[in-house]
Design a binder for these strands. Structure first.
Lengths: 221, 221
DNA sequence: TCAAAAGTGTTTCGGATACACCCATGA
DNA sequence: TCATGGGTGTATCCGAAACACTTTTGA
């Protein structure tokens, strides 16, 4: 599971630390009577307290060799068995998350995507695949509802896109495209406190946003 | 597993028939020391005799409820347990396939995608998801190497695309785009025996084709 | 000699990109 | 008053889509 958040103009990912061990992506086990999707929702909720989050399955990893070095526990332990990981990524509102370590781990916290430490097994590759999928999904799905606070400015939204894509975008063209999606409401307020001209605040039209999420966007973004 | 073939201008899918039961998508079990990808390759090979096939993982299905009606065997049988299916689709050359039923089934044959019968459990949805993924992959990956004979004409290639996409395309624009990909070699021969002007034969430049498969295509197709 | 299929080139249009000017604010 | 960031409008370009004419072939 790859939980992405956005804070201080940086894309963040939530990592767990094994007791005495390295960092890893959070995970969980699918219960016997539980659907895989439900399991993802449940473990995300246990870890962050959040509900109704955008969760996207992106790939299933099932090479036994990927767990090489798995000698942390004795060979007799159930945990030494072979696992298959079904990768999901989540987009969550950073400020609403209260990271909770699970039973197996001692620490749970956000890391800057650019600065994640060495991860266990193939978790780095899993994270990269999640990022890659997120970037592709950006082509035909709106992003932001789950990553930004309710009210936000156009430059903030642009920064989010630039951070995910890893490239800078033209300010004016970006605004045109975003408004063209017709999923944003411009509020009458402006964001005060900045050092310069006060930018407008926007918020997503939840209904239109959800519709766009499901149907996909006709033209990119 | 969803094996697609192309024959007589129709997209085909390979189905198995349970003993005394309904039709279903072919599948297999992942061995303990085997990677999930290898398992897909192995079962495809056992079923069709083919190697080096384009195989693409598209989604993992894990809702226990999807197997409702699973009362074909006694509740004590291992097969009555809960399964998770990792979906792969394959593109294979129709004429090279010699369909082999597996141990659990009595029949294995091609069906026209438009005319598949009722399938077991959620296999119809799985097939639809495979088709949907194939259509999307068409946007940035070349298709045809594994679905057409070595030598083929431009109208045949176009027909393949039209069949997968379910819409008709402009003959002239299609040719321009295809040649623009620079993965086709035009042969000096023409296809004879037709009732009209003899079309050129083409074949894929295997190296360039593979490169395009891995890197993706810059502009659509 | 005619209908049907195939080969090739030109025009047109729309969305994306590049770009310029004015406004508001705090230092 | 000026540097910085924000709001808006216009020109341009390129690739996709639309489209027309000629050639070949068997009937």
């Amino acid at each position: 599971m790859c939980d992405f958040g956005f804070h201080e103009n940086q894309l963040k990912v939530l990592l767990l630390k094994w007791k005495e061990g390295p960092w890893c992506l959070p995970g969980g086990f699918v219960k016997h009577e539980e659907s895989v999707d439900d399991s993802a929702v449940r473990t995300l909720n246990e870890r962050t307290g959040l509900e109704n989050i955008y969760l996207q399955q992106f790939h299933t990893f099932g090479d036994p060799a990927r767990e090489k070095g798995k000698k942390i526990v004795s060979a007799k332990s159930w945990i030494s068995k072979r696992f298959i990981s079904i990768g999901y990524y989540a987009l969550v509102e950073f400020s609403k998350v209260n990271p909770q370590p699970d039973i197996l781990s001692t620490e749970c916290r956000w890391w800057d995507v650019e600065k994640v430490p060495a991860l266990i097994y193939d978790h780095k590759q899993i994270m990269n695949k999640a990022l890659e999928t997120l970037r592709l999904d950006l082509n035909d799905h709106p992003v932001g509802y789950n990553l930004l606070p309710q009210k936000f400015t156009m430059p903030e939204l642009q920064c989010l896109y630039e951070t995910i894509l890893g490239e800078s975008l033209d300010r004016r063209n970006f605004q045109k495209r975003m408004l063209g999606l017709e999923i944003l409401d411009r509020l009458k307020e402006r964001k005060l406190g900045g050092a310069h001209k006060a930018p407008f605040l926007y918020r997503f039209d939840k209904r239109k946003y959800q519709k766009a999420l499901q149907q996909g966007l006709k033209s990119g973004w």
